[in-house]
């Protein structure tokens, strides 16, 4: 399968196989005018399979969101056809308005325009808890 090389843009590589579409939706890449490629189940020497997203524009991306959904992803910034920056995704310490608290008794269910904030409480097991009610994120 051939996909044109990017001149100026972003490649999110090493997304766990199957997580690419969720990341695509949560990054709202469907709203972009530029070319965006989502490659599912690409070959990976390390993991067997992986997903890749290529964005043909240097748009601001939410690194926290990428870190949450694909903590081992590599984010490559391409300019003039050359790799100019390579970043490792990391689990963010807090997540703001990325996920919603599912506890029906949480204040976020009733309070107007309250940010949904989660804190990483157990990095080893990737557990985030709502800062308001401490309910674990699903």
């Amino acid at each position: 399968m051939n996909i044109d090389a990017i001149q100026n843009g972003i490649v999110i590589d090493h997304i766990p196989a199957g997580a690419g579409m969720e990341l695509y939706k949560m990054l709202r890449l469907d709203a972009l005018d530029c070319s965006v490629a989502l490659i599912k189940n690409a070959h990976s020497n390390k993991d067997g399979k992986k997903d890749i997203i290529k964005i043909d524009a240097e748009i601001p991306v939410d690194f926290d969101l990428i870190g949450y959904l694909a903590p081992h992803a590599k984010i490559n910034i391409i300019r003039d056809g050359k790799l100019v920056e390579k970043r490792d995704a990391t689990l963010p310490k807090t997540l703001t308005n990325v996920i919603k608290c599912m506890n029906p008794r949480c204040i976020t269910k009733t309070e107007q325009e309250l940010d949904q904030i989660f804190r990483l409480t157990d990095p080893e097991n990737r557990i985030y808890r709502c800062i308001y009610c401490e309910t674990k994120a699903n």
Partner: peptide, 9 residues
Amino acid sequence: HPKEGSALV
């Protein structure tokens, strides 16, 4: 308050 986390708000 009956909602959890209301005091933090």
